[in-house]
Design a binder for these strands. Structure first.
Lengths: 199, 199, 199, 199
DNA sequence: TCATAAGCGAGACGGTACGTCGTGTCTTACG
DNA sequence: CGTAAGACACGACGTACCGTCTCGCTTATGA
């Protein structure tokens, strides 16, 4: 019954060589930041050439966006710690760790977003929604377990958590710590989710 | 050598001419975006010259940062609507409006932040803390009025509100609306601040 | 790094495009003088770009030097009028005419010579020696014809003729005329070369 | 019978301060060459200011010209060795020595000459004619002594000697030596001046 | 003796060119 | 045919210098 497709998921968006080019891009991006990164450097480093790069990605911006999305691909499924609080902490911690690697890259990507709606949509789809899905699954599970009411689940909550982390990482110079994440979950998210309930 | 004061903390931060240059910078920034902005264009527009620009701000990046901070200077005091909820809504709405004007500029500024810790610190001091102060005043007032316990006031709350707005504006393509702000205040912030109380 | 050949001694000194760029340079040089000449103008005029110019010649100075040498390339062989006096007059007249076109360019080139010994050597080799060779051939021919003794041929004579013309053109404001050249040849050079002889 | 004028010669063209500024200019000129010289540097070095410089000399070019003329002021009278040959050798040697100090400055001055006829005329009057006068006096004395015929004295001879020296100094990279000057006088100038005479 | 003006230092300013660098397009030669 | 290599046009960057200008400060004179 098994097909011969090697990976049954989505079509392998980039072939091996392309993935390598993106990997080099991502590395140089983290080492040098967005505008000290040059397409030429990526090509040289990867023993490729500028023409090859531009044949695949029409601009530096698109190259960086692709590298970022590829580099932050979170294919892991939703956590199942058994409790809402545990799941939220897990999510917060994981995003926290991931973001620390990619903070400067993400800043660069953000800049690109107002270049074209197309880019912004790609980012929203590939990056934001992917993470939101995990969050929604956690909340759904909690509802099923009866931990929270379905009514309290609003779209804002994910944006709130994600926004908090983004803010600490990208805007203020104070990256979140395990402690602040715990505080956030216990003092804000949980109270919000369990409001109208008797503790 | 040159005297790029900018962050020496002296009082009259920019003189009249400098403020004018920054205003032109900000305008062109909003019209063209960060990297279609050229220092030469700013100088020409302001009937100045590149040398004059660079005498004051050592790079395009610093110029843009200065223009942004100057352009978003919120000197207004904390709102006094008389209730915590009213104040929070007011803050949310104001930040919301301001950010919508400066979203693309802010993206550009964020990019600059990982160029040097010095820039990041300047941004934190000049921009973030300035807004945080307003927020803290609102909470303090609420404590004084007895609306909330002093114990529930943690540093995370401001980052949460700011982060939410930033996220909606800059990261996801879905700018916040009045409705989402209300939802945020009523469903998240207020429950968190009044937890452990009987409504 | 970059390959500024220019004085490697290889044969085909400049390719077609390079010769064109030098021609434009020389023209603008004569029209505007050295320091009203801009590299950008040369590039624009030649539908090229500054980068292309600087890839070939590392500075404005070197560009001008190259253009001058190329523009004054005297590949013509020594004149053969049959008599020493005729040859000398011919040489004098030709140098005279050439110099009149390039006087201001030559002033500019002279200025560059004390920038580096390398430049000075290039100039000596490419420009001065090239002309001196013609002069020496004329004298040798005269010796062979028995017009003069080999003993009277010293190195000073060429410098004297060249120096006279240079002086009249570049230093004093009185360019030489056909008449002064005749006078020079008849009253100075010929007496010197035929001294110790009975007319 | 003596007046109270301190120096009975021409009016003191520059006052003390101005002479000092010119001296600094000349020194920096010799140290750095024309275009590495900046008016600002002269002012700073002389504890003066650009405004003061420009109040006196309307441009860098004029400043350099003034400094050069001041620095090469040859007020010494014509030599009187008693013989034409001795006088010529003396002149040649002196010019030779002077020029060696000012070669690079003179190159710079030459460049300026085609900026305006006014400059060229000033140079001709202040520099060239001053030296030519000495030369003419020597020839006149020789005529009076009966060493040479008045008929052989043409204007070309001075230009020839000066041109030779200039050429060796400024154009070719081979400065004249005592030996070449002797050779020039004995093999060229003297034969020319004594032509048509029986030795 | 004090005030008012002229000259000076310091240095900011508008302007312009320099020389460098990166992007994105293009051509050439290789495998 | 796709690729590595790299030249090319374009255009912005940040620097340097010119020549003009405005400031205060000092000094030299006139009431």
């Amino acid at each position: 019954m098994s097909t011969h497709r090697e990976s049954t998921g989505a079509k392998p968006r980039w072939n091996e060589r392309e993935a390598e080019l993106l990997a080099v891009t991502l590395r140089l991006l983290q080492e040098n930041g967005y505008d000290r990164l040059t397409v030429e450097a990526v090509a040289t480093e990867a023993r490729s050439s500028k023409a090859t790069m531009y044949r695949r990605w029409p601009s530096k911006e698109r190259l960086v966006l692709a590298a970022f999305i590829e580099g932050t691909n979170c294919s892991e499924v939703a956590p199942r710690t058994g409790s809402l609080r545990g799941d939220l902490l897990h999510i917060g911690t994981v995003i926290c760790e991931q973001s620390s690697e990619h903070a400067s890259t993400m800043r660069a990507v953000l800049m690109e977003l107002d270049r074209s709606p197309e880019l912004a949509e790609a980012f929203e789809t590939e990056f934001v929604l992917q993470r939101r899905k995990v969050f929604d699954e956690v909340l759904s599970a909690a509802v099923e377990r009866g931990e929270i009411d379905a009514a309290v689940v609003t779209g804002e909550l994910h944006d709130l958590l994600a926004g908090y982390l983004v803010f600490r990482f990208l805007v203020s110079g104070r990256p979140p710590t395990k402690k602040t994440v715990v505080s956030l979950v216990d003092d804000v998210l949980m109270p919000s989710l369990t409001r109208n309930r008797r503790s």
